[in-house]
Structures are given as structure tokens and as C-alpha cells.
Nucleic acid binder design. Structure first.
Length: 389
DNA sequence: TCTGGGGTCCTAGGACCC
DNA sequence: TCTGGGGTCCTAGGACCC
């Protein structure tokens, strides 16, 4: 989906169309916008100018991107680049509603859909009637049109022989574009790209590649496989080689079970375990209650309880502990997470606290944990990335 | 410019078991 | 006397993604 959060907000506030708008932050000051309702005059919207706080941008409209602001940028910096931009708080419930909506439109047309978060999916066109016409372009157009007519939202589609290439192709023609990428176009359309464009090559891997003089996927493709194995490890090296050659055998996965659920929060200022004891204790309890509520609402229990801290210097530590039996009880989660907390250095101030429950098991009709589903022989599960090659 | 929240997967060492 | 070869589970950290 194109600038998903921002686009959903523009449906609600059409008077903002064409203006630089950023979504982010939360809480502080901007809540009044929502309370005021959709009739708000332009002057009444909060601006980025003078923003103080720790938020980041989650989404920026294309008009705002002209000013160099974009996802993950701190709001304080964004305020300097584009002070006149309108700042709206994140309304995740609303985005989830539209997410469910556009996904249901897709599965009505093409049932094999893999969920990749609120604003992204993979779709298997292979056996959809008409899925092969014009290399998939006709079906892509139908999906785009159906979503737009129902919701008013635009999306960009990449059509390719596999997920790796489709994801890259989807970036070629944004917003509201379609790109059909054929295998024989690898040299001309993929190899000139930066390695960073590959889903799975992040900042660290990119840095290391550049240090070896590898900038583009063409550079990467020319390195001998064995050289990559030697420098990047058996699994990752082999995967890098396959990626550079546009090869990816992962199927589109339509069903999956959650592995963990967590809640975390960044404080408005760094806190100290001793000096801010009361405040921290309250936040900690709330986090445990929220995770427990999430688990209960979705029908899961978990055995591994963990905490996460981010110190003032941004270092992250985690501690966890596995219980004999899975739980979704706030008090037990809080007690166990409390023990975990005792094992970390609490002399230093920290900015974030999180609580996580892993080792999830779904609750059955009887209210008892289901035995973990055995991989069925009829439909073998996808091989893990490192087992592919 | 001091950098959110919610996830997944991988690695690696140690405990423990047969 | 200086010592195996699996396997699984637990824990901590880190890369990466939306």
C-alpha cells in the first residue's frame, strides 16, 4: 500500500490532500485533533514546528517526502526540515480496519495471499484465472482497481517469478504503479540496483558488502559462491549468491501461528530503577496486563516470559525465563518478568521497558493448550532460509 | 537530528540426556 | 586417563522487516 497510514488519514481529513503530512509521535498534544472530529479547519491541525519529544515518523505523505522527511526519522529532525508539515497521531485501530478490508478484497480475487504486516502482502497468481495475461499485469490492475474503488486507497504491485523479485519490482513504480519483471531482465533491471534493495540485506550486511567493494547486485552476482561462503558464512553467503541471481524458492504461505507477543514503551525521559521506582512499577504492571490481555483476546498462552530494556546509550538487554506451564495470567507474567528484571544491570538509566511472552500455544475449545501442530506430510512446510541451498 | 512498537529468524554456548 | 557423539532445550544477542 502506498504511504498507508497517511493515505488512511487523508480519507478522514480530505482537506489535507496535497499537503505535507506526517504520522507519528502519539500522545502529547495531538490527541485533541481526533477529539475535534473530521470537520477541523486547516489552521487547527498541529504542525511539526516546535515539536519536542521522542517520537519518530511512521509514514509521510509524498508531499512531505519532497522535503526529505521519511519513515523512521526523528520528529525533532523532521520539524527542522519541514516545520509546516501537519502532524497526526498514529491511529493503529483505524489502519487495521483498512488492512483487513483491502486484504479481503484481494483474497476474494486471488485466495493464495501471504500476510506481511498491515500494509503488504504476497499473492500467488499462478492458478488464478487470468493470472497469466500480459504477464500478470491484467490481474494486478484488477486488484488495484478493486481496492481503490472500494476503499479509495492506492497500492503498488510487482509481478515476478518469485517473492524476492516481486518485492523489488513493487518498488519500481511507486505510487499506484505496476511493474512486471521477467527472469531475462535480471541483468538490466536488478543488477544495477544497490544490494540494499534486497529484502534481507539490511544496513549491517550492506556495510560489509561495500567494504569488500560490492555495491550493486551485479557486483554481488560476479563474486564466486565460495568466496561469499567464506566471508559471510555458509547459510547467509549461499543466500546472498542466490539473491543476486534472482533465485528464491520460498512458497507463498497463507497460514501462520504467532511465535511471541510483546508490549513495550519508551518513556518521555530516561528513568532510573531506584529514583523512579513508583513510576516504573506502574508502567511495568501495565505492560504485563496488556500482554496478558492480548494473549487472552487472541486465545494463546505462553511459557517463556521475558523483559527488554534499552539503556540511555541505546544498548539493549533482554532476559527471559521459561515456566513449566504456559500462561496468560497477568500476575504470573508480572512475577516472572520481575525475576528477569532482577538479573539486569539497573544502576544505569534506561529509556525503554518491554515485556514479552514467547513459546506460544493456542488454546483449544476446551480451554487447554493445543499440542503444537505437527508439520503435515501432505503439505511440507517451507524450508528455512538456510536450508534452501 | 538523539533515534517507536511489534514482530521473525538465526547463531552460539551451555545444560542435560541417551 | 584427558576423555564420543549425537540430540533437544534454554538463554542472550543481533540482524532484519513492516
Amino acid at each position: 500500500m502506498d504511504a498507508f497510514y497517511a493515505s488512511v488519514e487523508l480519507l478522514r481529513y480530505p482537506q489535507l490532500k496535497g499537503l505535507p503530512v506526517v504520522i507519528g509521535g502519539g500522545r502529547r498534544g495531538v490527541d485533541s485533533v481526533l477529539a475535534a472530529g473530521p470537520e477541523l479547519p486547516l489552521e487547527a491541525f498541529p504542525r511539526l514546528a516546535g515539536y519536542t519529544g521522542r517520537g519518530v515518523i511512521t509514514t509521510a505523505t509524498y508531499a512531505a517526502r519532497q522535503f526529505g522527511v521519511g519513515s523512521a526519522m526523528g520528529l525533532m529532525k523532521a520539524a527542522r526540515l519541514c516545520p509546516q508539515a501537519i502532524l497526526l497521531p498514529v491511529d493503529f485501530d483505524e489502519y487495521r480496519k483498512f488492512s483487513r478490508w483491502f486484504k479481503s478484497i484481494i483474497t476474494d480475487i486471488a485466495p493464495l495471499m501471504e500476510d506481511r504486516g498491515v500494509d503488504e502482502v504476497y499473492i500467488d497468481f499462478t492458478d488464478v484465472p487470468g493470472g497469466q495475461r500480459e504477464g500478470g499485469r491484467v490481474l494486478a490492475r484488477l486488484i488495484q482497481k478493486s481496492i481503490f474503488e472500494a476503499t479509495g486507497l492506492t497500492c503498488s504491485v510487482g509481478v515476478a517469478p518469485n517473492k524476492l523479485l516481486a518485492k523489488m519490482a513493487s518498488e519500481f513504480n511507486k505510487p499506484n504503479g505496476i511493474s512486471v519483471l521477467h527472469e531475462h531482465e535480471l541483468r538490466d533491471r536488478i543488477w544495477p540496483l544497490s544490494c540494499r534493495k534486497v529484502n534481507g540485506i539490511g544496513p549491517k550486511a550492506e556495510q560489509k558488502l561495500v567494504a569488500h567493494g560490492i555495491h550493486t547486485l551485479g557486483d554481488l552476482a560476479q563474486r564466486p559462491r565460495d568466496w561469499l561462503l567464506a566471508h559471510f558464512g555458509k547459510a547467509y553467503g549461499a543466500w546472498l549468491h542466490e539473491a543476486a541471481w534472482g533465485r528464491d524458492a520460498r512458497p507463498v504461505v497463507t497460514e501462520s501461528e504467532p511465535v511471541s507477543m510483546s508490549r513495550e514503551t519508551t518513556f518521555e525521559r530516561d528513568l532510573h530503577a531506584r529514583h523512579d521506582r513508583a513510576e516504573l512499577s506502574q508502567v511495568f504492571t501495565q505492560l504485563c496486563e496488556r500482554v496478558a490481555a492480548d494473549l487472552q483476546r487472541k486465545g494463546y498462552v505462553g511459557r517463556t516470559i521475558g523483559v527488554k530494556l534499552r539503556y540511555d546509550d541505546f544498548r539493549i538487554v533482554t532476559r527471559d525465563q521459561t515456566l513449566g506451564e504456559a500462561t496468560a495470567d497477568a500476575a504470573l507474567i508480572r512475577r516472572t518478568a520481575g525475576l528477569c528484571l532482577k538479573r539486569v544491570d539497573l544502576t544505569r538509566r534506561f529509556r525503554l521497558l518491554g515485556v514479552r511472552v514467547g513459546g506460544l500455544q493456542r488454546l483449544g475449545e476446551d480451554g487447554l493448550p493445543q499440542p503444537p501442530a505437527a508439520p503435515s506430510a501432505a503439505a511440507p512446510t517451507a524450508p528455512a532460509m538456510d536450508q534452501l541451498f
